[in-house]
Design a protein around this nucleic acid. Structure first.
Lengths: 350, 350
DNA sequence: AAGCTTGCGGCAAGCGGTTGCCAAAAGTTG
DNA sequence: CAACTTTTGGCAACCGCTTGCCGCAAGCTT
């Protein structure tokens, strides 16, 4: 049981850290530096509150002991956890991966821990997580929240949160500019001579699904197109087959699909059925997820800066958590979108 | 200072929770139940330690107040955080998404929080995270660790961890059975008449990359094949172009590629250059990630139960954290693999 | 040089739980 | 019914860190 690190260090203080078996606490540092724990605490959190000389001494002591403050203890007294929970409806969906990537990146930069939660497309689970974790997270990022407006409002009164792709009057929101994207997509289809278009709907509880449909209908009607709508479908490639079959039956020559996952699923089914894309039917997806560029044919899709959106969401949340006196907190960020034309769209069949 | 919760509830106890502004603490529960906080604590953690009647009373009080113990405070005294950190080299890589999915799922089932960390393929960041988070996580799962054996050994002495896809004598490991998979793949290629094969290498620090190459070389040589090796390449689709070009230059008719990401990148490049897959060259990937089934052509690949591997990793870690008297902790889990033949492999060109 | 401002750092009271220890209560036994 | 054992539950001391309050000493003013 002889712990080799018990041996006194020959001389260099560099390896003094290994001396204790138990992780060093603030008290150890205080003792080593010859000050009170409170001073150590301040030296580490508000450095300008202590004399530079003392601070240096403390920092050296801390470094020597290899001291790391316990986030738990810190959280206990400060009431903050230094963690943010990110709630996504489906961790399986590459779209959310991109979001997670963005949030993770930005949170890490801010030294905040990310708590990832998969709500499995269920508003109950979402609510439950929001409730259970209210003590363990300083704030929440709700990606594509399934909550009702009322629920959202209620929750946002208790805890800081920002929603993503879900409009809310009560909480800051970052949104993907779907409307203009849908219009771009319809413009593109119109220019290719399509007259009969179909919207392939995603989850009914998805706010962005509703928005997309609304704009789609309005704009397509305005253009005098024949408008169809099918769905709802689960936003997964596996739902693509059913969607593809239904889409074909509508007689539309082009589809704008709720998201890329579904669109890719449709692509596969259409190919299996010998329906050529884009010769027989054009397909436009949404999100430009991983895979959209190398599927077959490569998917024309509405590109959104998803990862960046994740970053912005974090910034907004952090701004809310640590309000800067000067700047008012931004309540809404709209991320620009554009249509990425690849090979799944082409001229309408004659 | 009148505490509103002192008012007796009219009758229904259901909405009593909304009464206090501050989240209820164990003290509130104790007061409501008319017992000491210690009793509440025990009633909630070791129910058999208190009288059933008292326990029921406490449970009711807790429910009424909507009490949720603070994991922070609990952790402070118990020394546990109820969180597990999962370290992945690159959160961008779909392969790790699958792992994360698995760990997330299993951790959630166990009521443990997942702390996700992207180490950016750097052993320093990995070490750093391991160090910085030793207080905030009860254990670690290292996916495809970039650490040296020595580092791994050292770290594993301080904190509970399990490695994934990284052999280790010091820590429990879950591995993908790469060797047999590579052999299957070579068998497949041999049966298609390929004689010149090329291994497209991934990151040199990746242990599984080394293993794959080792087995590849051995087995291909045994079969009397002409063996090539190119690389290393970053495991990203964008590295695929360079890899494809290099692969073509070797004169090999088939490649086994470090992973699907790289393989898909190669596919794209080969197509762009007019080199037909599989007519001119066969490609075999590894991991069967999202996208491997719908790229063009669909990728023949080594399928691994990645998500399940994540789950197993969690189980092993949790077993380590809460050792059951009876069962010895498993030190190694090997996940079976199989070759999924799709359309990127075909007969060797004449 | 005396009086005053200001900066620095210590004291101690929490933050919300857990847990060892012990006394009171309840149950057993002869 | 007394003596003894077993439960049950309260007291209080932490866990590691933060922070309001306050005293001291150094720096400044006149």
């Amino acid at each position: 049981m002889a712990n080799p690190s018990v041996e006194p260090a020959p001389q260099g203080a560099g390896d003094a850290n290994a001396r204790r078996d138990r992780p060093p606490t603030i008290r150890d540092v205080a003792e080593l530096a010859g000050v009170a724990t409170s001073t150590v605490s301040r030296a580490l959190s508000r450095p300008d509150r202590v004399n530079p000389r003392t601070r240096v001494r403390i920092e050296e002591a801390a470094a020597e002991l290899n001291y790391i403050p316990s986030s738990q203890a810190r959280g206990l007294s400060s009431g903050r956890t230094n963690a943010v929970a990110v709630l996504v409806p489906d961790i399986t969906n590459p779209f959310y991966f991109d979001i997670i990537r963005g949030t993770q990146h930005q949170l890490k930069a801010a030294g905040v821990t990310q708590l990832l939660v998969d709500t499995e497309e269920s508003s109950e689970m979402e609510l439950d997580a929001l409730h259970k974790m209210r003590k363990s997270a300083d704030g929440f990022i709700l990606a594509a929240s399934r909550l009702t407006d009322a629920q959202l409002t209620e929750v946002s009164q208790t805890q800081p949160l920002v929603t993503f792709n879900r409009a809310s009057t009560s909480a800051p929101t970052v949104m993907i500019d779907t409307p203009s994207a849908i219009i771009q997509a319809l413009e593109h289809l119109a220019s290719l001579g399509h007259h009969k278009v179909c919207y392939v709907a995603g989850p009914p509880t998805s706010w962005s699904n509703q928005m997309r449909w609304k704009v789609f209908e309005e704009d397509a009607t305005k253009r005098g197109m024949e408008v169809h709508r099918i769905g709802p479908y689960a936003p997964k490639t596996t739902s693509g087959a059913a969607a593809a079959d239904a889409a074909v039956r509508t007689g539309a020559t082009a589809c704008i699909v709720f998201n890329d996952l579904l669109a890719i699923g449709m692509l596969q089914r259409l190919q299996a059925r010998g329906i050529r894309v884009p010769a027989d039917m054009s397909i436009i997806g949404s999100d430009d997820i991983f895979g959209a560029d190398f599927c077959n044919p490569p998917l024309t899709t509405i590109s959104s800066p998803i990862e960046q959106a994740g970053r912005v969401a974090v910034s907004m949340l952090l701004a809310q958590l640590n309000p800067l006196p000067g700047s008012a907190t931004r309540k809404l960020a709209v991320m620009p979108t554009h249509l990425t034309v690849r090979e799944s769209t082409g001229p309408a069949p004659a």
